Amino acid sequence: MIRKIVEYQKLNTDILNLLIDKFPDGYDDSDIISFRNAQNEVIEAVEVKTEDTIYLVKVGKRLVQAMEDFDSTDASDKEEAPEMAEDLSDDFDEDLD
């Protein structure tokens, strides 16, 4: 299984939907995974999975706001969202193998 670390700025609608499905009321401290990256920096992330990939989404105030904004959009905005995020769908920070 592939692991990818994703910044909130690079979330596509699929990952946002996974986050909202897994954490409909938001995440708390028990959901956060802490680890050190290759530069020995402490990273905090929440985990969501697809069939072949584990996404570690870096947490922060902006992630919470992005989830709230995405969840509160109406159906017409959700239809437009894939077009806006399309260019970022394969553009992730780091791959962990």
Rank of each mutant, 00 (worst) to 15 (best):
I2W: 01
R3L: 04
K4R: 15
I5R: 12
V6M: 00
E7A: 11
Y8E: 08
Y8G: 06
Q9I: 01
L11Y: 06
N12A: 08
N12Y: 03
N12M: 01
T13S: 14
D14K: 15
D14V: 12
L16R: 07
I20Q: 10
I20L: 13
I20W: 07
D21G: 11
F23V: 01
P24N: 07
P24R: 12
G26N: 05
Y27A: 07
Y27V: 04
D28N: 11
D28Y: 05
D28R: 00
D29W: 08
I32Q: 03
F35E: 06
R36W: 08
R36A: 15
N37M: 03
A38R: 15
Q39G: 07
I43H: 00
E47K: 11
T50W: 01
E51R: 12
E51C: 04
E51M: 08
E51G: 14
D52M: 04
D52P: 05
I54A: 04
I54H: 02
Y55S: 00
L56S: 01
V59N: 02
V59D: 02
K61N: 12
K61R: 14
V64P: 03
Q65V: 05
Q65C: 01
A66Y: 01
A66T: 07
M67F: 03
M67Q: 02
E68I: 08
E68K: 13
E68Y: 11
D71C: 11
T73H: 12
D74E: 09
D74A: 08
A75W: 11
A75R: 12
A75S: 15
S76P: 06
S76C: 09
D77M: 13
E79N: 07
P82L: 03
M84V: 13
M84G: 02
A85D: 08
D87C: 12
D87G: 15
L88C: 08
L88Y: 04
L88E: 07
S89V: 05
S89K: 14
D90R: 09
D91A: 09
F92K: 11
F92C: 07
E94S: 04
D95Y: 13
D97S: 07
